[in-house]
Nucleic acid binder design. Structure first.
Lengths: 224, 224
DNA sequence: CGGTGTGTTGAGGCACATCAAGCCAGGTGG
DNA sequence: CCACCTGGCTTGATGTGCCTCAACACACCG
């Protein structure tokens, strides 16, 4: 969404192309960092293919994944002068580099753009905040159900009853939802036993009972 | 901080004054709503005195307090077209009404202002996000210690060893930190027994051992 | 074949929620 | 003046959801 608006409004801007890339594109291998926490915010990145994770690492070694970015998402936007967390590819990924300087320059030239971006930035972060508020109070089951729902919503092209890709490993899911690997695994097994989902292989899942999954994501004890 | 920048840069702008207020000011009684979730974002409010709470109420009746706003804070900023949560006074409070329309108008007139506000908005929300990420993984003790530290940091005018006001009730603290009233109370008692703080009365506390409180806020098991 | 990385499953413990009783200050009415 | 109520807070007893630790299954790879 942000991506399309940027494309619409900035498509004609002559980007200063990152020398280390062709066409302002970068190819990423799994585990390749896109940027580190504390680095100066020089670029935004539009994900063209693959999946990227944004996360913080705390002093005690624990890791909190802040978000997963899928194709059409933009990462790096809304960080301020320096990036607020680490960012790296999960799978092979292609990203488009959007130099921050050009974007800021065109804001100065087109004030109405600044206002629009302000709106987008606050909107996006507010959504993320809603998610974290929600997760804060939820049980493991509610968190997993919410997560699976949001995964399904990200890929509306995957038909009902078809296999949804689940490109991140259990540890990533755990670090995103604030659960351990064990609990993630156990909860998925439970959902399978309840015939709510199927887990045919490691990298995907199938929603068997959309309605029940939705109920579980809202409040566990409405479903028995 | 946002307030001062707004004052500095916009002090000379002729505000359209809310007819229901004098001088663009509003006086609030305890429990009086400032705005509701879903209302159109027509104003921002600068807190001049008193304390205000912003919160969401979920379908199951649980309440999540998103933030407490103290004098010099601005609420309503960064919500998009409609407010994202409820907002009401905890104590008697005076707020200055800042019509959104005027602010947006002056953004259009002064592009550099838009860029600055974008920065501020992203910065503020990112801070809030940091807080929620942090709290997400913390124990009750770490949460309470973090909360008390941030309360103390909000009032640098209160000297070391002096009574810090704690204007919100235990239920508010619990709904902010994701704990029950009982756990809040128990944890405060524990901190008192450890001689880290004193709780002379309901509406305040005294930091007796700043260093230990800081350690407790970071990771519980570094202090025994 | 063993080694490694990822996921599943079981047993036990602990932190926090829940339920419930009691304390204290302030208000109201006899 | 005391009797009583009410609301906010504290404290105790009990239950439970998730973490921790640990064993095992399985795929992949040299």
């Amino acid at each position: 969404m942000l991506a399309t608006i940027l494309a619409d409004t900035l498509g004609d801007v002559p980007w200063t192309v990152d020398p280390a890339s062709r066409n302002g594109l970068r190819l990423l291998r799994p585990q390749t960092p896109l940027f580190h926490e504390g680095d100066r915010t020089e670029n935004f990145y539009e994900i063209l293919s693959g999946v990227v994770r944004a996360f913080k690492v705390f002093a005690d070694g624990r890791r909190q994944i802040v978000s997963f970015a899928f194709p059409n998402d933009i990462v790096g936007f809304g960080h301020g002068d320096t990036y607020r967390f680490e960012c790296e590819a999960i799978s092979d990924a292609i990203v488009r580099v959007i130099p921050k300087a050009s974007l800021m320059r065109s804001i100065r030239e087109r004030p109405e753009l600044g206002e629009k971006l302000l709106q987008i930035a606050t909107g996006e972060v507010a959504n993320m905040q809603d998610l974290s508020i929600l997760l804060f109070r939820k049980t493991a089951m509610e968190r997993i159900a919410t997560f699976l729902m949001s995964m399904a919503r990200r890929r509306p092209d995957v038909g009902a009853g078809a296999r949804q890709p689940l490109p991140m490993c259990r540890a990533d899911i755990g670090d995103f939802l604030g659960l351990t690997i064990s609990t993630v695994s156990r909860t998925l097994t439970k959902l399978r036993d309840m015939n709510v989902i199927d887990v045919p292989d490691r990298g995907g899942f199938v929603v068997l009972d959309f309605h029940k999954l939705l109920l579980l994501s809202e409040s566990e004890d409405t479903v028995h």
